[in-house]
C-alpha cells in the first residue's frame, strides 16, 4: 500500500517481475450503486485520458499499462525514485536551480495543454536516479481555460515550498518561473503571478483544502 486517499487506494504490485502501481477508486456505500459506479468509472476514465494526453504532449508522468473500467482501477508504470518532498533539501544549490527550471518547463507544457493538475505539491512529484522528474496523481486535474485554475497549481507548489522547504523556496521558484515562462512566455507568466497574488489575498486555507486528495 502506498497511499490511502479519501477516494482511492494506491498500491504497489508486481507482475512477472514487472513493477506496477494500481490506483483503485473504492465504492462508496452512501451513494446509490448506479451513481457510485458512474462517478468512479468517469473519474477513472478522466484521469487515464489526461495522463495519455499529457504523455503525448511531452509531460513526464507514469505510463498507463492497463485500465479496468468495471473495477475503476488503473494500473500504472512504477517509477523508481523518490518523492521530491523527501529529497529536495539535500541537493546543492546548482541542482536545485536546475530542478526548479526543469519543473517549470514541465508545468509550462502541462498548462499549454490546458491541463491544471489540481494538487501540485512536492509530494506529487517523483525524481528518479537520473534526476528526471515525473508528475503523479491527476485525481483532481481538470482540462480548463480558466487562468485561475492554472494559477492555483503554481500557488499550491509555492505554498508547499514555503511550508516544507522554506530556505530554498526563493531559489527554486525563481528558476521554476524561468522554466515556466520559457514555455508560456513572459506576458502569460506575469498574468499567472498576478492571479496568484489575488488567490493569496483571498487566502482562506486554500492550501489546506487541496493538500489531500
Amino acid at each position: 500500500m502506498i497511499r490511502i486517499g479519501a477516494e482511492a487506494v494506491v498500491s504497489k504490485l508486481e507482475w512477472n517481475e514487472f513493477k506496477l502501481v494500481s490506483k483503485h477508486r473504492v465504492p462508496k456505500p452512501y451513494r446509490m450503486p448506479e451513481l457510485d459506479k458512474w462517478i468512479r468509472e468517469r473519474r477513472t476514465l478522466h484521469e487515464a485520458k489526461i495522463m495519455v494526453d499529457l504523455k503525448k504532449a511531452g509531460v513526464p508522468c507514469p505510463a498507463i499499462i492497463l485500465m479496468d473500467r468495471d473495477d475503476s482501477t488503473i494500473y500504472l508504470q512504477f517509477i523508481e525514485g523518490s518523492e521530491l518532498k523527501k529529497v529536495l533539501d539535500s541537493f546543492p544549490p546548482k541542482i536545485i536551480e536546475s530542478i526548479g527550471r526543469n519543473l517549470g518547463e514541465i508545468v509550462g507544457k502541462m498548462h499549454s495543454s490546458r491541463v491544471a493538475h489540481g494538487d501540485l505539491t512536492t509530494s506529487n512529484i517523483i525524481i528518479d536516479e537520473h534526476g528526471r522528474l515525473y508528475l503523479i496523481d491527476f485525481g483532481l486535474s481538470a482540462v480548463t481555460d480558466d487562468l485561475e485554475e492554472l494559477a492555483v497549481d503554481v500557488h499550491l507548489l509555492d505554498r508547499s515550498l514555503e511550508s516544507a522547504h522554506y530556505p530554498i523556496r526563493e531559489l527554486f521558484m525563481k528558476n521554476f518561473l524561468r522554466g515556466y515562462s520559457s514555455i508560456l512566455g513572459r506576458e502569460f507568466t506575469l498574468k499567472i503571478l498576478e492571479k496568484m497574488k489575488e488567490i493569496r489575498r483571498r487566502g482562506r486555507y486554500v492550501e489546506e483544502r487541496r493538500r489531500r486528495s
Binding site: 479519501a6 477516494e7 462508496k28 452512501y30 451513494r31 446509490m32 451513481l35 457510485d36 489531500r212
Partner: peptide, 9 residues
C-alpha cells in the same frame, strides 16, 4: 452525494 463526498474529505 456531492455534499457527502466533500464532507467525507
Amino acid at each position: 452525494s456531492m455534499l457527502t463526498e466533500t464532507l467525507e474529505r
